[in-house]
Design a binder for these strands. Structure first.
Lengths: 226, 226
DNA sequence: AGGATAGGCGTACGCTGTAAGCCTGTCAAG
DNA sequence: CTTGACAGGCTTACAGCGTACGCCTATCCT
């Protein structure tokens, strides 16, 4: 009875899957080569037959997550489809909160396989459909991408420890009201903020802005025929 | 001649300053207790008399960076002041590229001292001045905050290694055009993108959206008198 | 049958954060 | 002036990290 038949054969995929699982359940700091190896029932050094180094594993995690992107059905008008795409992306990031930290090191999702280019293509298609020039599609892509990632990064995702939240609230409450009047006035809205609603607010801002831009350019084209 | 008089006395401030310096010059991964200690001419364990643990040092870095925020002069109309504030914040993050990764772990700047609340107060004031309700100020704060941080995070800041960029371009070039038509069409704009311009584009989107929102609410108020 | 090779394993090195304890210079109270 | 407390350094030690290097063995091709 050969070993290689008993235990599932080790592959890059299996390693990255295990790493992603560890990250989702125990956090990014728990992701070590030794921990991954334990997860797949192997010694650490065996992993190096299938991945270049740890960085390669982390790249793989990013890629795998991007591959999970769920394409919204293409119904409704263009702004609604943009919204649906953005919501889907947010859900994706929320499902793997720590992936944001990997994106931060990599300066964004850093597409490395065709699969992870597909969501990008979708986004660009939507922008084109919304009436943007090729050039503005790229700009809008960065703008929306920045917003979505930044927002999800800020909203916390995983471990907003109660102790940490408490300390922040205490600190906010202790501020001199005369020096921070607006902060004092709005503080209750910080406390009772709903993530979904906030995300929609910012998304709405950007989409309204987009509409304004498109409308303006139509006027410009009509008059200048550029 | 006492030692404590010869060498500058060790303080939390000095430690955090040294840590920030190491981060800015050698990157976040170089920031270790031993490295910081060496920087201030001391052994690692001595630091623990002044800071709780490494996490405390990293919190201190975030705080110090936020304290460096430069307040734009309050001239011009409200949208221009909003722009100026956003540009200043971007410059701040760009000056310390790796701080984004700390923010990512902390889910945003995580204000911990009055100083780091001051930029927040400014932002909220500007939103109020722009005509937003208290509630919408908080929403706009999150939206703009998300955008700015996400954008700077994506634009790379520091170490966009040439080798990495190359690999990304190669991969993009190798994509099947029929499956990624828009991507192929716009790819040249990705290559020649200018960070400042892109940032302004997204900023413009959000500000236009804000204006639209304010205008709409004025109408709503006039008719409903809410 | 035999040699090549792929894919495991063990050992070892230098790095990390930090717990525990020690040593010394400073300063206040008796 | 002495004594004791204490602040703030230093040393040692430990567990865990990524990974270079080399060895061992099961499988496969000839």
């Amino acid at each position: 009875m050969t070993i290689t038949k008993e235990r599932e054969r080790l592959t890059r995929q299996r390693i990255i899957g295990a790493a992603l699982h560890v990250m989702d359940t125990e956090g990014l700091e728990a992701v070590s080569m030794r921990r991954i190896a334990r997860e797949v029932g192997v010694e650490a050094m065996s992993l190096y037959h299938h991945v270049r180094d740890k960085e390669d594993v982390l790249d793989g995690i990013c890629e795998a997550v991007m591959g999970e992107f769920e394409y919204p059905d293409s119904a409704g008008d263009i702004t609604e489809r943009l919204r649906a795409g953005a919501r889907s992306y947010r859900r994706l990031l929320q499902a793997h909160p720590d992936v944001m930290r990997l994106f931060a090191e990599r300066h964004g999702p850093a597409p490395s396989s065709p699969d992870s280019f597909r969501p990008m293509e979708l986004a660009l298609q939507l922008f084109r459909e919304a009436g943007l020039s090729n050039r503005d599609c790229v700009q809008a892509f960065h703008a929306f991408g920045g917003y979505m990632q930044g927002f999800v990064m800020m909203e916390g995702g995983s471990i907003e420890s109660p102790e940490h939240v408490k300390r922040k609230e205490d600190l906010a409450a202790s501020l001199p009201v005369d020096e921070f009047p607006v902060l004092a006035a709005v503080s209750r809205y910080f406390a009772e903020c709903d993530g979904d609603e906030q995300f929609e607010f910012g998304l709405d801002l950007m989409i309204r802005g987009l509409q304004a831009k498109v409308a303006e350019e139509l006027v410009g084209d009509a008059s200048a025929a550029e």
